[in-house]
């Protein structure tokens, strides 16, 4: 028992996610990764800005985008950011069950977001003939937005893995950093989405 770091609520440290060296390293490592991700998405945004008017006679961003669906997707992802904050709040209070519950809600909101995105792409392809190959605008759009959707899918798989793997372990100093790194990654996905709905959808609609 002395070696599995299981601690009761009275002795759990204030910041269980950063109480061990491994936890501190995971935390810094994830932020280092996010710095790199920022540059990766910047190159996709730059490419999109350079190619968004090259429609090759196909539909323009103004004709294509609908604000209602984008607004719904934004609300889903923004709310999932808050629910993961709730999950980390319960982690810091050493309440494993409530943390799992809020992580589950976060996952469901992420699935709903992804479903909307799949519907959106399906709609563009079948109603407008707007595909990855139909124009340079299409290539840049699907690469940027699809890469973000891929990050959401990866995040959901990651979440499912840590929730199931630790379901019977309860909260301890070994897995608290794992939940915390996931939550930081999930917030970053929302950061990228803020720029996507602003630069791609809203600016595409006024232009």
């Amino acid at each position: 028992m002395a070696h599995d770091h299981s601690l009761n609520p009275e002795t759990m440290p204030h910041h269980p996610e950063k109480a061990t060296l491994e936890g501190k390293n995971k935390f810094l490592g994830l932020w280092f990764f996010l710095g790199g991700e920022t540059v990766l998405f910047a190159s996709l945004f730059g490419t999109y800005l350079a190619l968004k008017n090259s429609t090759a006679g196909g539909p323009t961003s103004e004709e294509l985008f609908g604000l209602e669906l984008v607004f719904l997707m934004t609300m889903l992802l923004l709310t999932s950011s808050l629910t993961s904050v709730y999950a980390m709040y319960h982690m810091k209070n050493n309440d494993f069950k409530k943390m799992q519950l809020w992580l589950g809600i976060t996952g469901l909101l992420g699935v709903a977001f992804l479903a909307c995105e799949i519907y959106e792409f399906y709609h563009y392809i079948h109603e407008y003939g707007f595909t990855f190959r139909s124009s340079a605008f299409g290539s840049a759009f699907y690469t940027l937005v699809g890469f973000h959707g891929g990050h959401v899918l990866f995040g959901l798989s990651w979440l499912a893995a840590i929730m199931i793997r630790n379901a019977k372990r309860g909260l301890n100093l070994y897995n608290a950093p794992k939940f915390n790194t996931f939550s930081l990654y999930w917030h970053f996905i929302d950061v990228v989405w803020v720029f996507i709905f602003t630069v791609v959808y809203l600016m595409g609609k006024v232009a």
Binding site: L34, G36, E37, T38, V39, G46, T47, A50
Partner: peptide
């Protein structure tokens, strides 16, 4: 780390916008 990323991101977007 994050501002390092943001700095490189600004350079990237600026360079690609200048291209057009």
């Amino acid at each position: 780390m994050i501002y390092g990323g943001v700095w490189a991101a600004i350079l990237t977007v600026a360079a690609l916008s200048l291209v057009i």
